[in-house]
Design a binder for these strands. Structure first.
Length: 887
DNA sequence: TTTTTCACG
DNA sequence: ACGTACGTGAAAAAG
């Protein structure tokens, strides 16, 4: 059976335009309506799988309806220019999708659609879906024709067939015309009968079936309504006529003209590139079933060799020509995942080596592994860090990679969310690649396909890596980030891999014991809560908790979330005086968090074989250049509150007699700020090694050191935090629990004293507006397209980011430098000590007894001299028998 | 999958 | 009048 999808082009374009914020691409062209339309098309192709497809447009001239009624569609606001300019793009887009489109002078899209659905009704054996935002179209519904009406924006449609229309309105599709005849339509300037709205019209139609039926039975009506109907009988008849869709348009095209046979991936990708639909470019599979294979670019010519034991010698011979490698790791966590296989690209030929072959005991396989581990080769990869980690658990070393396209892509745009290989291929105009998800499936549906499919996919991937090398190298140089790449990020990838491989030992028994302790305390608190509340409920559920606090106990609502009442700690603290249960809940929350995340969560991550946790540092996530940590996250282990801090006691050295050594930068962000802003007072404070918060309090309040009390220091500290984050009076007022006015006065006072800082803040925002990006000390870059937004919130956010990123990002640069240098020093000086963790401004090591003193010295020295600033850097070092003791 | 909450720097 | 402090990851509930 054929299936025809018809889109009411103007209607959907309008919907999309008003539903989405006014996006625009880099040349200032608005694209929101085109974007919305695109998502709609993709959804329809996916869900409806049409065999025939048409987009119908209104011809922009007077239609026959205007001859009958001059005011038709009068009073309608003119199409905004921001939308008009998108129609040519829209036409192009539809062509790129391979979808037919037309319009006809003197007719509206409605009439074209009405005619086509009539033809379909008569022809039979065709299913039709009409997509529109216009309820009038419901009159076209039939056994074969379904109307898809957009609901809230354009993200969802509601399907109307005759039974559903009957259920919802109690009307047949034909009666929709009568409905409009009675009630009119302001948007089309159709009068109807004044005073008759939807409710009255429906009642009348249920009784008398049609406009004619109502007019013939006016004697049965009474009151004001009767008067109005009698008076406006002609209006009703005319309105019905206007609302009737004309279904006899002289169409010249044939059924076959509407045939839809899929889009051509490259053309569509080109169109998306032009429109700068980055997310779609990365998400979409342009080689998918909609794209005929014949149109694939030249990549199909590349020779692939599935390497088995017999063919290994051929590969070994080709190794000198190999310049790209891809290691396919299955699973999110490379420490627990497995290696499916590797692909190598030489000149003109790609080799796929399944893991069984790579790990074989033969001399040939051994030779291949030796080559992978050799450092004297040049090799491009995608995600060296991940590959190195996954291979190390298989006893295979990966060395000598000279380029990593993932790391390069991250430096070129660290805010890009999914830096997938197929996304990069698309961005650089390379042949289309399948998304991993489409090859393997995702989540529970993950399945390794046939070997030939894997071979083909991985060979395409490694070819992409090979082709990305040169253009990305150039882009790094253009951005002056080649040193950042080659001297910092690339070496760091291997440093991280070796830190993770070593892992950190966990005292499992101690952790379990703490869990038991917590369980006891939680049980007690839970009872007090049930007792105080007078009922049992799930304390972990914000919804149930909200019901208790704000419905049952009638406590004042402080803050709402988009789904209900907020019950976060800030709210609960304000509610504490009202009811004893609140304090218990706060207490419960603290301990429950420790139990679930830090006791149970951590235990799940301890490896049976090593008794250690091996976190995975991600190097390409944070927009500022920081690292992040997963499986488990070891960068958010509690420290602020004593109960939580105890967790740190279970992180212990992996060998008896060794110690944990920690080293953390003192005020690195404010020191960076002092350097970048060249603020005299701030630089002076650090040169004299003063307590920066006390010093700030002295200068802001204008008092000598002896007069700075704890409260003044606390406020000054909050201001310093605010400065680093990109200050706003609102943010500071929230933090200090003061009014916005007071906060603003504080900030003003601060800037009056630290004038260099004010100058920096002003300049950096200006610079961001000018260049479209900001940079760190080592040229790391972050683009801020929203810095010119007209939306206040978006713009303000971008401005704060412009102030914060150079500070946070430069601090990240510095500690990363220290890590690479430290790794070299450990090797050079033959230390047995091991670097284990990085927590943004802190490094954690385990050291043998006899290395404590030299390591203290070495770590401090390297961290303090990693990068020379105009103010000194300071690192504080300590050791202890576990992470808790080393503070 | 999304939302809420909370842990860290 | 607008309504945010910057950057992350994990757990639990609820859709």
């Amino acid at each position: 059976m054929s299936k025809l999808v018809i889109i009411d082009g103007n209607s959907i374009a309008y919907r999309a335009f008003f539903a989405l914020p006014l996006l625009s691409n880099s040349s200032g062209l608005h694209t929101n309506a085109v974007y919305g339309f695109t998502t709609m098309l993709l959804k329809l192709l996916d869900e409806q799988k049409p065999t025939h497809f048409l987009v119908a447009f209104d011809a922009g001239k007077a239609t026959f309806r205007h001859k009958d009624y001059a005011d038709y569609k009068g009073g309608r606001a003119k199409t905004p220019p921001e939308l008009s300019e998108q129609f040519p793009l829209l036409r192009e887009l539809i062509t790129a999708f391979g979808i037919s489109q037309f319009e006809l002078d003197g007719y509206e899209a409605d009439d074209i659609i009405g005619t086509l659905t009539r033809v379909a009704d008569e022809k039979g054996d065709i299913e039709v879906v009409v997509v529109t935002g216009d309820k009038d179209m419901l009159q076209l519904a039939s056994e074969q024709v379904t109307i898809a009406l957009t609901r809230k924006g354009i993200s969802e449609v509601e399907l109307y067939d005759p039974p559903y229309i009957m259920e919802k309105y109690g009307l047949t599709p034909k009666q929709i015309i009568d409905l409009k005849g009675l009630m009119g339509d302001t948007s089309d300037n159709i009068p109807g009968i004044p005073g008759v709205g939807e409710k009255t019209a429906l009642k009348l139609l249920h009784e008398y079936e049609s406009v004619e039926g109502v007019l013939a039975n006016t004697d049965q009506l009474k009151g004001k309504m009767k008067e109005k109907i009698v008076e406006h009988a002609d209006d009703a008849r005319m309105s019905k006529g206007l609302a009737t869709i004309y279904r006899e348009v002289p169409l010249t095209s044939t059924w076959d003209d509407l045939t839809y046979s899929g889009y051509e991936g490259q053309a569509l990708a080109d169109m998306f590139r032009k429109l700068e639909f980055k997310s779609l470019l990365e998400k979409m599979d342009f080689s998918g079933p909609d794209s005929p294979d014949g149109d694939r670019p030249a990549q199909a010519e590349i020779a692939t060799v599935a390497v088995d034991r017999e063919r290994l010698p051929d590969l070994l011979e080709a190794l000198p020509q190999v310049d790209a490698l891809h290691v396919e790791v299955v699973g999110d966590n490379p420490h627990t995942g497995y290696v499916l296989g590797i692909a190598l690209a030489a000149s003109g030929t790609c080799y796929y080596v399944p893991f069984e072959v790579l790990s074989d005991a033969s001399a040939d396989a051994e030779a291949l592994r030796t080559w992978i581990a050799s450092s004297d080769k040049t090799l491009a990869v995608y995600d060296q860090h991940r590959a190195e980690v996954a291979l190390c658990w298989q006893g295979i070393r990966l060395c000598g990679t000279s380029f990593d396209v993932l790391l390069a892509a991250y430096l070129l745009d660290p805010t890009e969310s999914a830096l997938t290989l197929n996304g990069l291929s698309t961005k650089y105009g390379l042949p289309v690649l399948k998304a991993d998800e489409d090859v393997f499936g995702k989540g529970a549906k993950f399945q390794v396909p046939a070997a030939e499919v894997v071979c083909d996919h991985l060979c395409r991937k490694v070819t992409a890596v090979q082709s990305l090398l040169e253009p990305m190298k150039r882009d790094l140089e253009t951005g002056e980030m080649h040193r950042l790449f080659y001297e910092l990020e690339l070496p760091l990838a291997s440093v991280l891999a070796s830190m993770e491989e070593k892992g950190i030992k966990v005292d499992v028994d101690g952790l379990k014991q703490y869990g038991v302790e917590l369980a006891g305390q939680l049980d007690t608190i839970m009872r007090s809560i049930y007792d105080a509340a007078g009922m049992e409920f799930n304390i972990n559920s914000p919804k149930q908790l909200g019901d208790l606090l704000f419905e049952k106990l009638q406590l004042p609502v402080i803050k709402k979330t988009k789904t209900g009442y907020s019950t976060d700690a800030e709210v609960l603290e304000k509610l504490e005086p009202y009811h004893p249960v609140v304090g218990h809940i706060l207490n419960y929350r603290t301990l429950a968090k420790l139990q679930s995340t830090y006791v149970e969560g951590l235990l799940k991550e301890v490896r049976e074989d090593t008794g250690k946790v091996h976190t995975y540092f991600k190097q390409t996530i944070a927009a500022t250049g920081r690292l992040s940590s997963q499986y488990p996250n070891l960068q958010n282990i509690p420290i602020r509150l004593e109960e939580g801090r105890k967790i740190r006691k279970v992180f212990v050295p992996s060998q008896p007699g060794w110690s944990i050594l920690t080293a953390d930068y003192s005020q690195i962000e404010l020191r960076v700020l002092a350097h970048i802003s060249q603020d005299e007072r701030l630089m002076e404070a650090f040169r004299n090694d003063m307590d920066i918060h006390t010093k700030t309090a002295m200068d802001v309040f204008g008092v000598p050191e002896s007069d700075v009390d704890a409260n003044m220091r606390r406020q000054a500290k909050a201001v310093n935090f605010g400065i680093v984050y990109g200050i706003s009076d609102y943010g500071l007022s929230q933090n200090l629990n003061i009014t916005r006015k007071e906060a603003a006065a504080f900030i003003e006072q601060y800037f009056a004293v630290f004038q260099g800082v004010r100058q920096y803040m002003d300049d950096i925002v200006k610079k961001a507006r000018q260049d479209g990006y900001v940079t760190t000390l080592l040229h790391r870059r972050r683009y801020l397209p929203e810095i010119t937004a007209s939306n206040f919130n978006l713009r303000s956010f971008a401005e704060r980011t412009a102030m914060n990123t150079p500070i946070q990002g430069s601090a990240a640069d510095i500690i990363k430098l220290a890590m690479v240098q430290m790794d070299e020093r450990l090797k050079r000086d033959g230390f047995n000590s091991r670097m284990l963790l990085q927590v943004h401004d802190e490094l954690v090591f385990e050291v043998p007894e006899d290395e404590i003193e030299p390591m203290k010295k070495a770590v401090k020295d390297i961290m303090e001299t990693a990068l020379e600033l105009d103010v000194p850097l300071r690192a504080d070092v300590d050791t202890g028998s576990n992470w808790y003791e080393a503070k």
